[in-house]
Amino acid sequence: MSESVSIVIVSHSPQVARGAADMVREMVGEEVQVAHCGGNPAGGLGTDVMAIKSAIESVYNQKGVAILVDLGGAETNSEMAVEMLPAEMGERVVICNAPIVEGAVMAATEAAGGAPLEAVKATAEEFLS
């Protein structure tokens, strides 16, 4: 079976992140790998660069990883995490400019058909247009 682009969900809230990931698994199925993380390093609301980096690494494959984020800090921290990956890995990881839950479902649906990373990102971002 060919690999699919994986999805990483990054929210300020661990519960939101887990809920969105559950929704993707339930609606789209298990063929797309989904990782999630939320909460700052002290366990409060926020995001954690190292946790984001580990989440990406846990589902990374050659087809790449699409990240869905919620508010500002989640995006900034995700960009930082991507830059901390080895370069050849980082260039196959993108952050989608899309609502976190809807974008994740759309991205995963596109990914399930084996679509390339650019198409997965475009589909997630198309949701608002």
Binding site: N40, D48, M80
Partner: peptide, 15 residues
Amino acid sequence: LVTTVGGASGPLYGS
């Protein structure tokens, strides 16, 4: 700062 702050200020001050 990047690994402990948990908000956008972590990557900003960290950078």
